[in-house]
Each structure stands twice: as C-alpha cells, then as structure tokens.
C-alpha cells in the first residue's frame, strides 16, 4: 500500500493559540479515515491545511507526494475537497456551478459535460440540475459540494462533514457512495456521528485540542466492550478528568 496522504508534524498557531499541534499520520489507498473530535479540536484546520487553504505554521503535508505548500497546484489537482458547510455560489445553477469547477480543473467543454453528468448521477442531482443553488434544501447543497469534490475522480478525497444536514436516507446514500469509492482512493472524512465511523471507516483518528489522541481501527477502539460513545468521551474528556 502506498500512502497518498502524508502529514508530518503539522502545526497551526493563531497568535498564542495552538489549533493544531504536531499532527502526523498517513493514509494509504483503500483506507477511509474517520476524523473525530469535539468542536474546536482542530479537525477543520487540519483539513484546510491539507487542502492548501491555510498555511501551516510548521510541518508538512503531501498529497500523492506533492507538497501542499511548495507545489500547491499540483497537490490540489489530485484532491477532491469538500469544505466545511459545503460553500457554493448561490446564484448559479447546479450544472453551471459544476461545469465551472470542471472547466477550472482543465477539462474541455465536452469532457466537462460528461464529468458533470457523471458526478450528478453519483450524487442524485439530475432532478435539480437547472435550479439555482440558493433555492435548494440543505441536503441538496451538501450533495452539490460533494459532486464538486468527486467530478475529477481524484485519488484523494478530503470531506469535512459530508453527511451534516442530510436526512437518514441521504446519509445512507452518501455512505454507500464513499464505500463504493473506497477501494481506489484515500479518503478522510470528518464527522460528529460516531456510528458513521463504524459504518464506513477503516480507521478512526480521534483528535482533541489539536493533538491526535487515538489512531486505530473502529473495532480496536471498542474491543474492550465499551461503546464508541464512551471511548470518544473518555478520550476527549479524559485528559481533564
């Protein structure tokens, strides 16, 4: 197995506050890593640095061997990123928005069309393809963001709360989608939903106060018979208790 995502000693400080403190891990092809932690733990900050949106204070991150600071464009080409809250341009229609993303990624007009059609089929967006994104429900908006991250079939996917705001059926579909893609990609998803980790992830990384507290398979985390909830609570509150 080759590591498609490599993170070494990644640190981000905002003034005197350390949001991410020496996080290191790597993700190989075929792995789905669940990134868990309380709010403010540093999940989104880590993902933003990995996506090249924030510059790390120190440490490095590489996507398919491309350093996100030294070779940002090459790294971003290999990456599908769903930012927190799935931001999109509200006045654009779903297909215009996705075509814009595909064209920026260097696909020709006809190629972009095929890519957009494929991504919309994967995320069940065909029914709303001509609607302005601002008129869509939260679940649809999230899926537009997901479609944008998938359309270039990137080897690396970084999804910040991909199932937030979806109803149980949609959550199930997104999980199925992630499971189906898992074999040929390296995927990181952040989530608050612990059952999701057992459902789709091959590995769970628990982070709090910017530090990695646990890095194991979901089965290993609960092997002493405790529930995932208890493990999460004791790890993230444990330091204080």
């Amino acid at each position: 197995m080759t590591a498609l995502i490599e993170i070494e000693g990644l640190t981000k400080r905002f003034g005197s506050f350390t949001a991410v403190d020496g996080v290191s891990f790597s993700v190989a092809r075929g792995e789905v890593v669940g990134f868990l932690g309380p709010n403010g733990a540093g999940k989104s900050t880590t993902m933003r640095m990995l996506a090249g949106f924030m510059l790390p204070t120190s440490g490095t991150a590489r996507i398919c061997g491309e350093d996100v600071v030294d070779r940002p464009v090459a790294a971003k080409r290999q990456l599908g990123f769903l930012p927190e809250g799935a931001p999109t341009y509200p006045e654009m229609s779903v297909s215009d928005f996705l075509t814009f993303c595909a064209r920026i990624r260097g696909f020709s007009r006809t190629e972009a069309e095929a890519r957009v059609a494929g991504a919309m089929a994967m995320t069940q967006l065909e029914g709303v393809r001509l609607q302005p994104i601002e008129t869509l429900s939260k679940g649809f908006k999230r899926r537009v963001g997901l479609a944008q991250a998938l359309l270039h079939s990137p080897p690396v996917l970084v999804l910040d709360e991909p199932t937030d705001g979806l109803d149980p059926n949609q959550k199930h579909e997104v999980r199925e989608l992630i499971r189906a893609m898992a074999a040929e990609k390296a995927i990181i998803i952040s989530t608050h939903i612990l059952e999701e980790v057992s459902a789709v992830c091959t590995r769970a990384i628990i982070i709090a106060n910017g530090r990695v507290l646990a890095d194991a398979t979901p089965a290993e985390l609960v092997k002493d018979g405790r529930s995932m909830d208890d493990v999460f609570r004791s790890l993230t509150l444990g330091e204080a208790a």
């Binding site: 090249g52 949106f53 971003k76 930012p83 920026i104 990624r105």
Partner: peptide
Amino acid sequence: LGTIELLLTLP
C-alpha cells in the same frame, strides 16, 4: 459565503 475556500482549493 465561504466560497473563497472552494475557489482557492481548486487547482
């Protein structure tokens, strides 16, 4: 809108 995060994480 937060779209800056989208725009600047495109290649």
